[in-house]
């Protein structure tokens, strides 16, 4: 089963395309990180998956073909919007009471148990909780709905390092217990490797890359060698990003499924996830989309997969 499937998905706000021609398939059972700089279209893509906005063109389905936003999709997905919006004047207990009455599926014992484990008092006003506790409360509401897929928009953005670790730990524990799929957006690239096993990179409203972390790492390498020869190889190989000093150059190369022989005088190194993501984000024109051929349309600029180097 696929957690999310999108075909030719686009969204335009007045004259601006927030998302353009996005085609992707995310199998269920993964922890998916949606990565991109601010304004890349991450929130738009998430809102489309949840059904909070309608696409301008294209379509998106979730959990094995359910139309995004349909009743079946809504009850099987939990969505935590940016900054975990909650009612600050309600107590924690009242928040649970509200959520329990607003949802068809609800596990009260699970919710109170989680909060007790986290040491969050039920009688406290939500507005008086720390940022980390508010995020944990929002996650508790999401988990207690017994979803098959949890979607979170920038869940870590405003948390301090300790709260960030604790939040991810309890999210991962929920994954281990319930076997649910998770998709979260983030502009923090460091530390993704611990959590995410599937990655979607979005830049300027277009998808640059998507796939399991293992495949993406295995599909790229860094070639280090003399700067004078760099141009020869950057023409011959699909180079994503190039860094050069006086004599030495590092080329981040995409290997199209077949292992390229390392040129004499050059050395190949495996690429690190953070390095890989940053390289793609620096070259918004580069893309490495495996699978189906691109749809005919306006997105022709990136189908060579080669970044234009100055």
């Amino acid at each position: 089963m696929n957690a999310v499937e999108a075909a030719g998905l686009s969204k335009r706000f007045r004259r601006t395309w927030a998302l353009r021609d996005c085609t992707l398939t995310v199998p269920a059972g993964h922890v998916v990180a949606l990565v991109g700089p601010n304004g890349a279209g991450k929130t738009t893509l998430l809102n489309l998956m949840v059904g909070l906005t309608a696409p301008t063109t294209g379509s998106v389905t979730v959990l094995g073909g359910e139309q995004a936003g349909s009743a079946a999709a809504r009850s099987a997905i939990a969505f935590v919007a940016q900054d975990a919006p909650l009612y600050g004047n309600l107590s924690v207990a009242d928040t649970l009471h509200l959520a329990r009455n607003l949802n068809l599926r609800w596990d009260q014992r699970r919710a109170t148990g989680r909060l007790a484990e986290l040491g969050i008092p039920l009688n406290r006003k939500v507005g008086k909780l720390s940022g980390g506790q508010q995020a944990q409360l929002a996650l508790t509401l999401a988990v207690a709905r017994l979803p098959e897929l949890i979607i979170l928009d920038e869940p870590l953005a405003r948390l301090d390092p300790l709260a960030r670790h604790d939040f991810m730990a309890s999210l991962m524990a929920a994954v281990a217990e319930d076997g649910l799929s998770v998709l979260f957006s983030s502009h923090v690239v460091a530390e993704l490797e611990r959590v995410a096993d599937y990655l979607i990179v979005l830049s300027r409203g277009q998808m640059q890359m998507s796939g399991t972390v293992d495949d993406l790492i295995a599909g790229h390498c860094v070639l280090t060698g003399p700067a004078a020869e760099a141009d020869i190889y950057s023409e011959r190989l699909p180079v994503v990003h190039i860094r050069r000093a006086g004599v030495q150059a590092h080329l981040l190369v995409r290997m199209n499924g077949h292992a390229e022989p390392v040129p004499p005088g050059w050395t190949a190194h495996p690429v690190d996830l953070e390095e890989l993501v940053l390289a793609y984000l620096r070259e918004p024109g580069a893309s490495a989309l495996p699978g189906p051929a691109r749809l005919p349309g306006p997105a022709a600029q990136s189908d060579t997969g080669v970044a234009m180097l100055s």
Partner: peptide, 16 residues
């Protein structure tokens, strides 16, 4: 247990 590892290290259960 997978759940304990994941809950203390904040890593993906699939990794464990």
């Amino acid at each position: 247990r997978v759940k304990d590892v994941v809950g203390s290290l904040a890593i993906n259960p699939n990794t464990v």
